[in-house]
């Protein structure tokens, strides 16, 4: 729980969810500070995706609350920009028009939406691909376009659900380094789901470890490593120690 005076952007307060005959969330509680990058890891099938759907307002919890800036946002989609595992770029839209989809859905004119998204293309390494179609992009570019579509909506919290899961390891490392840099410049508040412990440590200020289903928070580990993070950091003793700690918690719990 946050201490008094501790700034909180997002607070998950005792979230519980039971599907018929299948308890999934057993009182999940943690918080995220403004501009903080928090990763959620846990054994597969523990309910991470359900937790994300509940936070994103796509599903309602049976009990518990989601608070954003102190206001009840349970079941609300507006405070969150959600990036699913697949890039879900639509082949009938150009790359630029894919990135503006959220703005158009929100009622912005196509022209205004394009003017808002276009300046971000250079930062996202997509310069010159505005009028290309998604099938002309590499895997890494597709993910960056999907992330651009997510952040351009200018929501309070970014929810990233294993955004790099489908990429090869080299592209994945590049994307992680790039994401760390760009996030630092924009100051986004990010909640990331991942299977990849190394990815979680590399990107996060804090890692939340969930237990097996029905899930709750097992451990929160602060990653006190300098930023911007460099790929060489992975081989440092501090990095290895944190990785080891997370691995131990996960292994004990899944036994």
């Amino acid at each position: 729980m946050p201490e008094p005076g501790h700034e909180t952007k997002l607070l998950l307060d005792d979230l519980r969810k039971v599907y018929p005959g299948l308890p999934v969330l057993d009182g999940v509680t943690f918080d995220v500070a403004p501009g903080e990058f928090v990763s959620v890891i846990g054994p597969s099938g523990c309910g991470k995706s359900t937790l994300f759907n509940v936070i994103a307002g796509l599903e309602r919890p049976d009990s518990g609350r989601v608070l954003v800036d102190g206001d009840d946002a349970t079941g609300h989609v507006e405070p969150f920009a959600y990036m699913p595992q697949q890039d879900l770029l639509f082949p009938w839209r150009t790359v630029l028009d894919n990135t503006t989809l959220g703005l158009e859905v929100a009622g912005m004119s196509r022209r205004a939406a394009r003017e808002r998204a276009r300046p971000l293309f250079a930062e996202f390494g997509l310069d010159g691909f505005e009028s290309a179609h998604p099938y002309e992009l590499s895997g890494g570019m597709r993910q960056r376009a999907a992330l651009l579509r997510t952040v351009v909506q200018d929501r309070a919290v970014l929810l990233l659900d294993e955004p790099f899961g489908a990429l090869d390891s080299l592209t994945r490392t590049d994307m992680q380094t790039w994401l760390d840099g760009v996030r630092g410049r924009f100051g986004w508040t990010v909640l990331l789901i991942t299977h990849d412990i190394r990815e979680a440590v590399f990107l996060s200020d804090r890692v939340v470890v969930l237990g097996p289903r029905p899930t709750r928070v097992q451990r929160e580990v602060t990653v006190d490593l300098p930023r911007p993070r460099d790929i060489g950091l992975i081989t440092s003793a501090e990095f290895a120690a944190i990785e080891e700690e997370l691995l131990t918690v996960l292994r004990d719990r899944s036994r």
């Binding site: 759907n53 994103a56 307002g57 796509l58 989609v77 507006e78 969150f80 920009a81 959600y82 699913p84 595992q85 697949q86 879900l88 639509f90 989809l101 959220g102 859905v105 929100a106 909506q153």
Partner: peptide, 14 residues
């Protein structure tokens, strides 16, 4: 239509 695509649109408030 992909379920994830529906979720994406819903998250945008569609």
């Amino acid at each position: 239509t992909d379920r994830q695509a529906t979720n994406l649109l819903r998250s945008m408030g569609a």
